[in-house]
Simulated scan of single mutants.
Amino acid sequence: MTLPQLLATGLLALAGLASAAPITIKDDRGASVTLPDTPRRIVSLLPSLTETVCELGDCAKLVGVDRFSDFPASVRALPKLGGLDDTGVEALVALKPDVVLLGVSARVIDRLEALGVKVIALEPRSMADVQRVLGKVAQVLGKPDDARRIWNRIDGAISFSAQQLPPAARTLSVYYEVDAAPYAAGRASFIGEILDRLGAKNIVPPELGPFPKLNPEFVVRADPQLIMVGQRSAGGLPQRPGWAGIRAVKDKKICVWVPAESDVLVRPGPRMGEAAALMARCLRQAAAGPVPLPTTPFNAPAGGMR
């Protein structure tokens, strides 16, 4: 073997040793999880985590996802393993994942760990959480520099949307409904923080938490100028007691998100720049007059809603 060949062989061996270095992650439960190597087979049970893995360039490592993960399009062909409350454990274990990424509230965590499956639980709620989770997933994948690049792009896109808004769009009071219970996006949530960046006045104060369940009378008293709501919850909104008198309802300033838009808006991950652009479009429309309703009818996806 020639000297260059020996050197090349040595470099390859060193690279192999480097890639085999154990990775230890402290997840959002406070648990320390050690992986023997960069994982090659990953299961993701949260859409935002699925999108994060793909944005980091490792979509090909995903071998299974939750039923709601549908972006990018390539993940739609992967085995669907249920949701937070009904994960198909046997099907998941049969995929032999090196690690499972999921939310802290997933009921399946203890059972998977009892079966010897490596689990990393991550729960992004605020923008700081999203940046942190992006960094942790990048650490798992061995791509910390990519996390910084992606976060800078997200942050820059939000700033760009804010800069394009006219002054009239920055003074509107907003109620953002995430579920018809009603659950709202408070100022402490990533949605609320994007609204703050855009200059909107969220009627739900930070002390109520990220996604509080509200008494509907709270919204009536707050009298928002603009309502943002998903299409599946929008139909009966004006008929709620007292809501016909809310300024947003009287002035027809209700932005109704079609399902594909709702997915972008409620997933705390790489598409937050796109979410900011959607909210900025809504604010511009409301500042100009009544907001047009979507022309596409709402159809619940197969498997039900989140």
Rank of each mutant, 00 (worst) to 15 (best):
V63I: 11
V63N: 07
G64T: 05
V65S: 06
R67M: 08
S69T: 04
F71M: 09
P72F: 00
V75R: 00
R76H: 11
L78H: 08
L78N: 09
L78T: 10
P79A: 12
K80E: 05
G82N: 08
G82T: 07
G83R: 03
L84V: 12
D86M: 08
D86L: 06
T87Q: 02
G88H: 14
V89D: 05
V89F: 07
V89R: 07
A91E: 15
A94V: 08
A94L: 13
L95A: 11
K96H: 14
D98F: 02
L102F: 00
G103M: 07
G103N: 09
V104P: 01
A106H: 02
A106G: 02
R111V: 05
R111E: 12
L112H: 01
E113T: 07
E113W: 06
A114D: 13
A114F: 10
L115T: 06
G116H: 07
V117C: 07
V117Q: 05
K118F: 02
K118G: 00
I120P: 00
A121L: 04
A121N: 01
L122E: 01
E123K: 14
R125M: 12
S126M: 12
S126A: 13
M127V: 09
A128Y: 09
A128R: 14
D129Y: 12
V130F: 08
V130Q: 04
V130E: 01
Q131C: 09
Q131P: 08
V133S: 00
L134W: 02
K136Y: 13
V137H: 03
Q139I: 04
Q139D: 12
Q139L: 13
L141M: 12
L141E: 09
G142T: 02
D145W: 11
D146T: 10
R148T: 14
W151N: 08
N152Q: 15
N152A: 15
R153S: 12
I154H: 05
A157Y: 10
I158S: 04
S159L: 10
F160L: 14
F160W: 14
A162G: 06
L165H: 02
L165W: 02
P167C: 01
A168T: 12
R170P: 04
R170K: 15
L172F: 04
S173K: 05
V174H: 06
Y175D: 04
Y175K: 05
A180L: 13
A180G: 15
P182G: 13
Y183E: 09
A184R: 08
A184K: 08
A184D: 04
A184H: 09
G186W: 05
R187Q: 15
R187H: 14
S189R: 12
F190Y: 11
I191S: 03
I191E: 04
E193D: 09
I194L: 06
I194Q: 02
D196R: 11
